[in-house]
Design a protein around this nucleic acid. Structure first.
Lengths: 221, 221
DNA sequence: CGCGTCATTGATGTGCATCAAGTGGTGTGG
DNA sequence: CCACACCACTTGATGCACATCAATGACGCG
């Protein structure tokens, strides 16, 4: 939480996030419907969140990595609206939301920070909606890969190489596609020399080509 | 804004929303990219919000009616992330966001209310993502109609009759479908006696049948 | 009245889902 | 250490849902 704060304020915020929790790969950080008490800042590891309908349909609604926040959807109804599952062993900071609200009353910059976090999540979901509503399979995968690598790069990782922490099926669920379609799109990109995939190890050879694909709907005229 | 508040607090909040603005049908409440200053509470009228990519692709990301809030996506980057367009003559309360934050520091329940609004928007978008990622055309339209009528009912309107304020194309854009597909789905529902459509006037004859359609993916076994 | 916008309906095409078979990597127990 | 099972993944063949293309019809407004 990088902000302009006094040492005193920083101490108080430190207390806020004193509690940590380890999550094993495959375990739930929280279940949909569970009482909402805290939001979580990921320290290490990788998560997916997924939403479910009454009739058992479910879909991955996002992937979260270190430095990102999970659980904001729980505020409105005092219970979580999605599942959060660790895709690898992980550690999170548990941040009780009532304490955040209490402290926000006194620390203006913290309040604003909370607002920004939530707004950021709204904007992120906007872009997912755009992706799901208007892009073709290969465009979706290209956009997904670029987004992933961009977020990793912001955390000091490579701009070109990454390890996919999720299965093809999870990627497909997130992108509104079947796993076979995801696999075929990967193969197509590899065939064209745009990426290099071996299992879950992925290297982006031509980032610009990927960007072209994202913006390549038929806009003849 | 219904909350447990002292008269004094209520007065201050009244001042906050003193400013109003009328918007004509077809006009923009704000443009994507415009500086963010305020969020807006819709008093009367009907809006759509739409997101745009660099390459000109755009999609309706939501429809908003009286009593709902627009503009929360602008907080994170200090500029609006979508267009907001009136689908009929409308009036909104202009609520400068810096004043909201200022007042939230003093009125705890207002702060919590703001958090809930934002969380509600996150949850709403979650359900749109689920719809776009996993439903078929008729399921999408059924879910859309049920959601619309439910929100209208919560505002005192009929549970069964409504006037569509948007075109088939806008519905299609929101649902990730082409207008012809939307039209065909309407015709199909009418044929089956589930609804009665004449232009934009719609009557739901069998709400339960609609609900069945929403939950009708092939779950044989 | 005539024009533009919005909607309906039919015919055809295509992108992705579905079904199905096979491969390779990983982990487990003999 | 190998045999086996299992899972994730790849690849091919087929089918279907929706897009696309095209023609016509219904309003509403200047």
């Amino acid at each position: 939480m990088p902000m302009g704060l006094s040492d005193q304020d920083l101490d108080r915020i430190d207390q806020l996030v004193a509690s940590r929790k380890k999550i094993k790969k495959g375990d739930f950080l929280f279940h949909s419907g569970a009482p909402f008490k805290s939001i979580y800042a990921i320290r290490t590891g990788f998560f997916k969140t997924s939403v479910t309908t009454e009739d058992g349909r479910d879909q991955v609604s996002g992937f979260q990595m270190a430095g990102e926040i999970i659980g904001l959807d729980g505020i409105v109804n005092d219970h979580h609206a999605c599942d959060a599952i660790a895709l690898e062993d992980a550690e999170v900071c548990v941040m009780p939301f009532d304490k955040i609200e209490q402290l926000s009353l006194e620390v203006k910059s913290l309040q604003h920070h909370v607002h920004k976090m939530m707004s950021r999540e709204i904007v992120r979901e906007n872009s997912v909606i755009l992706l799901l509503g208007s892009m073709k399979a290969e465009e979706r995968l290209a956009a997904f890969l670029l987004n992933l690598v961009q977020r990793l790069h912001a955390r000091g990782f490579s701009q070109t190489e990454l390890v996919l922490r999720m299965t093809r099926e999870e990627i497909g669920s997130f992108l509104g596609l079947k796993l076979e379609t995801v696999s075929r799109a990967f193969s197509k990109f590899a065939e064209d020399g745009i990426i290099d995939v071996k299992q879950r190890n992925l290297k982006i050879m031509k980032p610009d080509a990927l960007k072209l694909i994202v913006n390549s709907q038929d806009k003849c005229i």
